[in-house]
Simulated scan of single mutants.
Amino acid sequence: MSDRWLAERKREHYYRLAKKLNYRSRASFKLAQIDEKFHIFREGDAVTDLGAAPGGWLQIAKERVGETGKVVGVDLQKIEPLEGVQTIRGDMLKPETAEKLKELLGGKADVVISDMSPNISGSYCMDHARSVELCTYALNFARQVLKPKGNLVMKIFEGDMMKGFLNDVRSSFQNVKLHSPKASRDSSSEIYIIAKGFIPPKEPVPEEEQ
């Protein structure tokens, strides 16, 4: 059996399972597996999802936080309505979008999750750099909205800029690990940063750093 054949079979398995369970994306299983291993969510948590379309991560987050929890999401693309979830359409790289998301959140978040991904250019170095940039926006947003001891999950493309970025993440969290869930493709360069135990900055994070 070729590696490609095995990868396709794995992808089809999660695709069919997503359809069966009425999840909007096979990526739902990535977040579910991350939560099962690292216990990201608690019932009643407030969660913000960055890069939320089509809504697979929103579904998992809502399941995990329950009726007493709050889930809000944002994406450049339209997100079809989900019961018990609030969403906006906008660019997280723009301060006005971040402000709208904060208003929707209505307070501090327990968890920030980000599955944001750059448009693939064909140049891996460029795609990696763009991925780090998106994660930097997610990290700075998390620094503004997370409650003490809150959690952050981000997708990043592996590359030479990752070590420096991880050091930045570690300056704000008690525990930081890298993880590739089983639902990820074996050939994928993506990996997830699992940051737990947010340490609030001594000085407020300036808005322009978003």
Rank of each mutant, 00 (worst) to 15 (best):
G69I: 07
G69A: 04
A32M: 13
N119I: 06
G90H: 06
H39M: 06
V74S: 00
M116S: 03
V74Y: 00
A61Q: 10
G56I: 00
A61T: 10
G55T: 02
L50W: 07
V145G: 08
Q144L: 03
T136M: 11
K37E: 06
L58Y: 12
Q77L: 15
I40K: 05
H39V: 11
I88T: 07
V65R: 10
L134R: 15
G44V: 10
K108Y: 05
A27K: 01
M92D: 13
E96I: 05
E43W: 06
G56E: 01
C135R: 04
E80C: 14
R64K: 15
K62R: 14
M116Y: 11
K100E: 14
L31H: 04
D127F: 15
G66M: 10
A129H: 15
Q33S: 02
Q86P: 05
E99D: 14
A52M: 06
D45E: 09
F41K: 01
E83A: 12
S121F: 04
E83K: 15
L101D: 10
K20W: 00
D91L: 03
S123I: 13
Y124A: 06
V132R: 12
Y23R: 01
G106R: 09
P54M: 02
A61G: 12
K70S: 01
R64A: 14
L21W: 02
C125N: 15
I34S: 07
R143L: 05
D35Q: 03
Q77A: 15
E80G: 15
R24A: 02
D127K: 14
L134A: 15
L50V: 03
S28F: 00
C135L: 08
V112Y: 01
A98D: 10
L146R: 05
V71H: 03
G69S: 08
A61M: 12
M116F: 11
N119Y: 05
L50P: 02
D75C: 04
A142C: 07
A32G: 03
E43Q: 08
E103V: 13
V132Y: 10
E99A: 14
F29D: 03
A109H: 10
E80F: 15
T87Q: 11
T97K: 02
R130G: 12
A142R: 02
V72T: 05
A46C: 07
I79K: 06
N22M: 08
V112G: 00
E103G: 13
K20M: 00
K37Q: 11
S117T: 14
E43A: 01
V145N: 07
